[in-house]
Design a protein around this nucleic acid. Sequence first.
DNA 1: CTGAAAGCGCTTACAG
DNA 2: CTGAAAGCGCTTACAG
Lengths: 372, 372
Amino acid sequence: MASVRQIAESAGVSISTVSRVLNNDPAVNTDTRDRVLSAANRSGYVPTIGRRITRYIGFAYTGRRTLVDAFDTAVLDGAARGADDARLDVVILNLHRDKQADETFTQFFMRKGVRGVVLRTVSESRDVCLKIAEEGFPHVVVSDRFDSPHVNYIDGDSKGDSLRAVEYLISLGHRRIAFAMHSVPDCDHVDRFDAYKQALANHGLAFDERLVFRHPINLAAGATILKLTRSMPERPTAIYFADPLLAVGAVQKAHELGVRIPDDVSIIGFDDADMRHAVYPTLTAVCQDASRLGFQAVAWLGQLLSGSAPGRFQHTIPTFFEINRSTGPAADAGAGPNLENGHVAPPGNGNGLPGATFPPSGASDKDMRGRP
Amino acid sequence: MASVRQIAESAGVSISTVSRVLNNDPAVNTDTRDRVLSAANRSGYVPTIGRRITRYIGFAYTGRRTLVDAFDTAVLDGAARGADDARLDVVILNLHRDKQADETFTQFFMRKGVRGVVLRTVSESRDVCLKIAEEGFPHVVVSDRFDSPHVNYIDGDSKGDSLRAVEYLISLGHRRIAFAMHSVPDCDHVDRFDAYKQALANHGLAFDERLVFRHPINLAAGATILKLTRSMPERPTAIYFADPLLAVGAVQKAHELGVRIPDDVSIIGFDDADMRHAVYPTLTAVCQDASRLGFQAVAWLGQLLSGSAPGRFQHTIPTFFEINRSTGPAADAGAGPNLENGHVAPPGNGNGLPGATFPPSGASDKDMRGRP
DNA sequence: CTGAAAGCGCTTACAG
DNA sequence: CTGAAAGCGCTTACAG
């Protein structure tokens, strides 16, 4: 309910000065400006349309906008559903377009009439999130994590399921397992990479840098990776793709080359949406409910604005591991090198599920397949 | 730049009454209300945040919201790009949620602070578009067509390319060509169906209702259709799917059943996004640049708001037909029934492109493949 | 059911 | 660089 009057009182200035700050008048002294903005964030200033207070939540990309990606779509859809529940509306904002360089983020958001903001970030623009958090404007970063206690975020934790995924491959007798990730890794891809290395280590398999592929994220890169693995002297018998597009591109290329999945190579993908069911064979994948990330981000902002949420939100939600048709027992080595390396498939039980190593003891079938 | 004062003058009432109407005060006489709303739309009333006029465009579903669909995503992405160019911001609105029953659409939109609206509609809710048009609120309906001169719309015209697609199949020697569409058809699906029938007629092929499949739009339905065609006594050798999800589901099922594409069956799909490149074999498809629909809708609204557009916008944009790997010469009949029916493949030139019927005379290769 | 008037929120010359 | 005051846009008791 705060108006310019409250802000003015709280900052010890006149309402004229508050108005100037909100409109980014360059005449205002920097210290005064900061004092007013900080007071504005403290008091929870609400812009109004006419005399009605706005109920807008911003949805902003800190980097370049890419609504076309399935992940972003799902996040936005979740955000819109969350907004429905909280009686808020989602505004798509473009920070690149019309945030003035000399304007703080708080000024920008208040000028736009939004009362909180969901931030989609990329690794290059984490500093933007830190800045917004520092200013104190209500925000939640989706799909990244921060050490700073001031940054609110929600992220999927794919580490555990990535470990599980690679261990599943190992349990199927795979010994040469490749890994593919973004050439500009964010913390999620790094998590998955760490889990991959951990799984190898847990089972006494040597880490081999040649089996790690770092590429841009698109179908063509997935195809390239699949092709590269086929021309290796010691072919991997399985690949874990840390990204949906890479996995789909690889499946595509496998068909084209006559490489059978999973007979010739097992593939595990990562899925943000429902891509895994739209390819053949359906992809075994570590899955993330991206829509839930957006939903919970806005749900929390709604609580914050209504005063019923604590001032901090740092949350991870579990992924889930879904076994489909793209994985199977390791191909009968055939190639000498595997044997030379001493990588021999253990005696299986016929369905490729020795059970001793997978699922990990304590994990039920529900854990393995069901959504949380 | 109109304010309550101008509206009041124009409608011959006091500003109090204008305010009451904009806030849906039930005390106001119906006639007065309508006079005021009509004046508000005539004068181009602009809501303000503080004293700044808003630059919001609404993005609203007249039916239930489904941002998750690739088509809707692409439209929204295009709308956001169009908004960037026009310095507008897109607000996702939910008509179902908080439009009050006794409130007109104009009142709702003005209450939300939006100055124009992009409408995504489904066949059941065309009346909503007509109502909004009748009220005179700035709007563009995306992906539908209307006879009323008051409704602004932009739609892809897939009729010509659908005709071309089916004639392409005929040119490849196909004689039993199935067609799949939505069980609740909108005008686009009807267009494609008409084109299908037209192509058959143009080439003296009998229309067979048993080759027409009407299903809900999802992967499972596509799979069902593919399966149904395989169990028919006289199997179709080609299928045109009027929707992306149906086509992908069918390709999926074909792999599962060991049905080879295009050797056993040729498939032409419809693509709103880039789905055709994410399946194997890549889909020959009639393609629509959905993003352009959203872009042009908002671009025109931007012009309208700045006074530089005519008051009417009824526009169709061309689709394009892209030949990929899912189509090939008709399978050697083998089955007796085709011959009994007198449907004999004409002598081809080896690559399945007799040329006489396809491409239609006058059409260049560029027309066939390139985006417009 | 409607208007004149009071009053809030905000912005903006004007003064210092 | 900042404030007091005028004034616009809007809403809302109050009066009829």
